[in-house]
Amino acid sequence: MIRTLPNSRAYTWSFHVFVILYFVFLFAPLLVTCVLAFNDSNFPSLPWNGGTLDWFFSPGPQRVGIFHDAQNLRSILVSFQTAVIVSVLCVVVGTCAAFAFEQETFPFKNLLYFLMLAPLVIPGVILGISQLLGATTAGMFFETHFDLDIAIFRPSFWLVVLGQFSFITTFVALVVSARLRKFDRSLEEAALNLGATRFQVIRFITLRFLRPAIIGAGAVAFLMSFENFNTTLFLVGSQPTLPINLYLQVRDGSTPVINAISFLLIVGTSCLALVNLYFSRKEA
């Protein structure tokens, strides 16, 4: 049953085998994707024709490696810019939300808290279309009343930022709140007692305590933004992000360049994940 009870050999071994199969299931698609990025073939499939780095470095014209593929490189850059801006915005507003909901009292607090949790249960596609509708309505409002044409209300880079910000902030707020709840408020009281102002207290005591949670939440926000598809799909303008760009390529047929990009993504996110995990372990 459990490790402290006597178990039959058959029970334990069938459990081991089950979990091994589960992990094979979990990693098979990722491993295959990575391996086929190095296959010397024009299609991401077997048989194995020997290794090559063409899909990373080849300058063309037959094979264009990822590092010479202007379109994909541009989308990576767009995704990167989006993710940086979104994660900074989310961390700032999410931390404010954590402070507001954990430490302050104000009317309609429960209603607002419920609203803050709402993005967790709204499907991403719906967040996308409502952002699109809301922005368009706002754009029309400004155009008819003030005769202003504001670009960010049309599908564009900034609308993507706003759309992703609208739900990733919730995750940041939850992570920071959880850490803030563990904070011993008598430390703040002690600092106030020693003559610090409220903002000095927050800057020197509370924020320092929250730092690991804020960094972790920032990393998660970065990744969520970088990889977001459902919401971005409806808001993207002339600058597609990497997931959108990849989706369009995957839908229309695939080349090992996609494997090469996937390989870089897998390696990159795994490193980020391990670093984040390491820091969260240290915190705990």
């Binding site: 990693f27 990722l30 295959v32 970088f226 997931p243 990849l246 989706y247 995957v250 995990l277």
Partner: peptide, 20 residues
């Protein structure tokens, strides 16, 4: 090991299943 694959973009994971 359990958490690692879920940090990777959903698109990459779906793509992996497609080529499998």
């Amino acid at each position: 090991l359990l958490l690692l694959p879920f940090w990777v973009s959903e698109l990459v994971r779906v793509y992996g299943w497609m080529i499998l």
